[in-house]
Amino acid sequence: MRYTKDHEWLTEDEVATVGITAYAADALGDVVFVELPEPGTTVTAGDPSGEIESTKSVSEIYAPADGEIVEVNQAVIDDPALINSDPFGAGWLYRLRVTGGPETLDEAGYAALTAGDSA
């Protein structure tokens, strides 16, 4: 699994599964609404590709790589609390056919990024 400095994770597959990290979910608090792009949308790494709203705030989801959205997680749209309860599993956001993009962080790199910071 790879990570971005914007606190998204993605799997190392041709069609990558994308979500937000537990660190990000914890910082947001209870998620009450998630908006995701339509399948077929082309995104560039770093582009806003949806938003996550908690009781406290709203955050954009940034595309972790270049590519095409091929599937969105309807379960997380219906029950946004999945992002809090299982951010790396049932709380995934969308699947992205990766065509390119910048270097992402490995687990150690991401851990270093968030170390010493209480979310």
Binding site: G29, D30, V32, S54, T55, K56, N84
Partner: peptide, 11 residues
């Protein structure tokens, strides 16, 4: 403390 667990549950 911003929250201890779920802010909605605390509410």
């Amino acid at each position: 403390p911003l929250r201890y667990g779920s802010d909605v549950a605390e509410h």
